[in-house]
Amino acid sequence: MTLLLDLALVAWLLALALHIARVRDDRNAIVAFIGFGLLLGLGWTRLASLDVALTEAAIGGGVTGVLLLRAEAHLRPGKASGASVSHGGKTLAAIACAMVAAGLALAVLAFPSPAPTLAPAAATALPSTGLGNPVTAVLLAYRALDTLLEKVVLILALIGVWSLAPDHLWGGAPSLRPDVVPEPLAYLAQTLPPFGVLIAVYMFWVGADAPGGTFQGGTVLAAMWLLVMLARLRPAPETRRRSVRLVLIGGPTLFLAIGFLGFAMAGGFLAYPESIAKPLIVGIEAALTLSIAATLGLLVAGPAQTAPGR
């Protein structure tokens, strides 16, 4: 029975992917992609990865969808059929891609059995972090350097996006530019955020011991902020504002500072003293959640579109 369900899900995912590849209209493809992201979230629950399922649904489907839809609306006036790849080229590409997929499928089927796993190692080390969710332990303890560098990647992407503003607008505010704000949207933007913030805080808080965590919570916060900006209840802030920048770097800075403190307290970079590991990690997560929310929101908002005020 579950096999049937899995098969249906996989077939649906592949059908949507093919639809995205073939359909003419970009908006149609993007809407299909959002659906794809949500279904994929369901797929991740079937793989027993609830943390990933939440992240995929929130970021993969949700925020990426908003970003792409806004881009499509922006580009729509200039729709012109670009130089299409020749028929022969397409066939050749299709063969090459099919070969890659087939090679990959063979490799997936040839994975050794029993599968090599770090689950026992992660479980053994879990008590010394004070956490209950092993994924959070991997992200913030065992492989904390990955997470720290990935935060820098997020900030760098934002620097890159901001650098695309014309010189005289740089440092100004981005604009989400809805043509009209329909009544229901404004209503939603007033009602939903309190719930949304509550859910985000909950997600971040349970993340230490149950599925959830900074990314998921941060994304929900970012979504609430975007909703408020889209409904024009609050304008997007000027990108040069110090308060904005401090929120952006707050999480990574605290992470890095505690990392360096590890030299003094726990004998190494990004090492936590066992007795206070959990409060330190939760503190880092709290700051990261805010920073992620700000970064994601500003990434969607894009480069500055109004000149900075005096």
Partner: peptide, 22 residues
Amino acid sequence: GDPVPQAMVITGIVVAFSATAL
């Protein structure tokens, strides 16, 4: 499930989003 690849996917999704935004 093995938590290590799961954490890698979460990192990967965030990086992929940054790439999309840029």
